[in-house]
Amino acid sequence: MWTEFGSTTPPSSDTRWRIVGAAMRKHGYRPNALIETLHTVQETFGYLDEQALRFVAGALRVPLSQVYGVATFYHFFNLKPQGRHTCVICTGTACYIKGVPAILTAIEETYGIKPGETTSDGNISLVSARCLGSCGLAPAAVMDGDVVGKLTPLETVNRMRRWTK
């Protein structure tokens, strides 16, 4: 697994590495482009796997432990692959006041997952967001990229059921 440190040659022939490489090149392979590069990796591959982290560490010449430390400090980064469908529940204050706890309970009762977890079949990931900035639509969620607002527990679960058919 050990990528030669400082090497800008991608770890595999997967063409998606070109996107990552381009992002690093854009920043002149500067160590301070770490977070930007991790964003690119996650956007490209869906999550940050060990191989990618080692490659980025080597190419940007950032210590391995620092790369891992950064990747785990920011909650936006996933170190594990996400489910085929993602439901991001907003837990901002407005949504909380307007009943998000009940929605989370309903999802847990239906799918047995809590925020940060993925169903065992890898179908649905439940994520909680600090605030989607859609407080006017509280309680709000992002379901596979679409913001949906004024949710009820029943409606949320019904929408998720469409993913399980």
Binding site: E50, L53, R54, P63, L64, S65, Q66, V67, Y68, G69, T72, F73
Partner: peptide
Amino acid sequence: TWDLMGRGTSMRIISDM
């Protein structure tokens, strides 16, 4: 070799990855 991972109460020291 060492750094810190995670944050808050789940912060830990880690070696490499």
